[in-house]
């Protein structure tokens, strides 16, 4: 586990973020005055059940959705009014891994080109230097150079998510935003991908905003947590506070939540996943 310098400064600040969908009298508030901050070097978990507004929050943050109100700030830059230079800086320093690795890789591009793209747009590296860096990065996420010229379709979900992680990290970002990066994967590979993310976070001393709908997944990953319910941040605090002494009933419900369909099996699977993580991080 990474030990945090206690007074690390906030890197990303979300203050009073509001996002509504629809118009006229049929609006739906997906994110309702959410505020939190991501401090340098920490892993912050954003947790809530499906539909609670987690993706919308980070989509606003990443400029994929236009917020209705609130301030978004990255390292002193106002994200809602970026100059061209600030935009460039933000895009190169804050990267994202999407939920569904099956749809987040361009099917018409080779892995080499996909992973090289951030280098191409954010750095002035020569093409051979780019290639070296891509190979290095692919090896770091556990894929060999022999994959460079293959297309996404020939990879499994777990491999694709590794590729997505490689793409996100290749240009050396400071912040990584992960939107449920393992929820679309087979349970058997979830742990591997989580471990990879954990490794990377430590090796590259990244600040990570990690989204999950499941408190179990983030338990061993996050230093602090924000709990979202219906677009409202109902609780936030350090991992120990949230797990040890949950204040809000929704948090307690999340902690106790047991999947209905196959409780025993799911618990076992979850258990083995957690053990895997523990043995890796031990």
């Amino acid at each position: 586990m990474s030990s945090q310098p206690l007074a690390s400064r906030p890197l990303l600040t979300v203050d009073g973020l509001v996002k509504r969908f629809g118009s006229g009298n049929r609006t739906h508030t997906a994110v309702d005055k959410v505020s939190f901050e991501l401090r340098a070097g920490e892993v912050l978990g954003l947790v809530g059940e499906s539909g609670s507004g987690k993706s919308t929050t980070v989509r606003c943050l990443m400029g994929l959705e236009r917020p209705d109100a609130g301030t978004l700030d990255y390292d002193g830059i106002n994200l809602r009014r970026l100059t061209y230079a600030q935009q460039r800086r933000f895009r190169s320093e804050v990267q994202m891994v999407f939920q569904d690795p099956y749809s987040s890789l361009n099917p018409r591009m080779t892995i080499g080109r996909i992973v090289a793209e951030p280098l191409r747009v954010n750095t002035k590296l020569s093409s051979s230097a780019r290639r070296d860096r891509v190979v290095e990065m692919l090896e770091l996420v556990g894929l060999g150079a022999e994959h460079l010229d293959r297309y996404p379709r020939s990879f499994s979900g777990g491999q694709r998510q590794r590729i997505a992680i490689a793409r996100a990290l290749v240009s050396g970002p400071r912040v990584l935003v992960c939107d449920e990066p393992v929820s679309a994967l087979d349970v058997s590979v979830q742990a591997q991908v989580l471990n990879l993310l954990k490794d990377m976070q430590e090796k590259l001393s990244l600040s990570v905003l990690f989204i999950a709908h499941d408190l179990a997944v983030v338990r061993y990953l996050c230093d602090r947590l924000v709990i979202l319910q219906n677009g409202v941040a109902v609780e936030q605090g350090s991992r120990d506070e949230v797990y040890g002494d949950p204040q809000h009933p929704y948090t307690r419900a999340l902690l106790e939540a047991v999947p209905r369909a196959d409780p025993a099996g799911e618990r076992m699977r979850r258990q083995s996943r957690l053990e895997l993580i523990e043995t890796r991080t031990a």
Binding site: L64, M96, L105, N106, E117, R167
Partner: peptide, 25 residues
Amino acid sequence: SAYVESARVTGVSKAGLLARHVLPN
């Protein structure tokens, strides 16, 4: 689509998105 958004957040310009991601697909 998600792969276009993925490219956007890595900083690809509108023209690059169109030429490398949107049009081919």
